[in-house]
Design a protein around this nucleic acid. Structure first.
Lengths: 150, 150
DNA sequence: AATGAAAGGGGTCATTG
DNA sequence: CAATGACCCCTTTCATT
């Protein structure tokens, strides 16, 4: 990973809509050179896409929760992620090393919606759940800068 | 929140670099109408920014972990988030209702880096930690669609 | 609040070094 | 792999409704 690529990634992590012209000015490359590098980063899967960062409160989804999941039948084949896909309200699904098997991140509108979601999760994947409600989020989604080599 | 705004937000959540022209085509609005709406969504703070989504493996940060944090001195003023800001490697900090006080999300390069980070977290905020290592991430950062009204 | 037009700048590609 | 130049499309603004 070249230094120029890391610079470009860092800039696009902070402002995903920055123009190739501005990226060029910031990196000392021409517009088309930057464009070429970005295309290659996208093709290689280093840059996976671009997203608008949205305020969940404004969207009517003020309640965030982490749901830890344990399969009830340890003998059953583990297809929990597949069963939870398309359930809605779930932003992430991590397989973890710990007491439980998965950690889910949920965004809902109200405690009632969370109650509904938990019922749907348990039913869809045959699991028990342990839920941790988020009270506030001092910071989130902060881009972790790419590793620098000495 | 109007339906057109929700449509625009959904489109920009999936492709944060979509052009105003394409947004117009997708929503049936003129380019300038879309542009005006996006500007207002940004000004109101509904759209908080745009980010490139980056593959952490490719950046040399293949190890993700959730760190649950408990203050050692419950009498001390709670400024954990401030103390952890700028520590690096931390992507998020949530204040939570549960046995522990905070959940942190970390991205590091190796178990050794995680060990270092945990020491820094404990020292900086005077806390004990409980860490859950992520083994794999079936999905993450999936945009939760804005609430639809019946 | 949306439209359409006009002016300027950026994206895109082929070519060259 | 980067730079240049040309062309086209998009962005941006403004007057109009």
């Amino acid at each position: 990973m070249e230094d120029l690529d890391r610079q470009i990634i860092e800039l696009l992590s902070v402002d995903g809509r920055m123009s190739y012209t501005d990226l060029g000015r910031a990196t000392g490359l021409s517009t088309s050179a930057v464009h070429q590098r970005v295309r290659r980063l996208e093709e290689r899967g280093v840059i996976r896409g671009y997203r608008a960062i949205v305020d969940h409160d404004a969207l009517g989804l003020p309640l965030t929760a982490f749901i830890s999941v344990s399969p009830l039948d340890p003998a059953a084949p583990d297809d929990v992620p597949e069963r939870l896909t398309g359930l809605g309200d779930l932003e992430a699904c991590h397989s973890v090393a710990g007491v439980e098997s998965y950690i889910l991140k949920a965004r809902v509108g109200s405690p009632g919606d969370l109650e509904d979601l938990l019922a749907r999760v348990r039913a869809a994947a045959n699991v028990s759940t342990r839920t941790t409600v988020v009270l506030s989020t001092p910071w989130e989604g902060r881009p972790v800068p790419p590793e620098r080599r000495g």
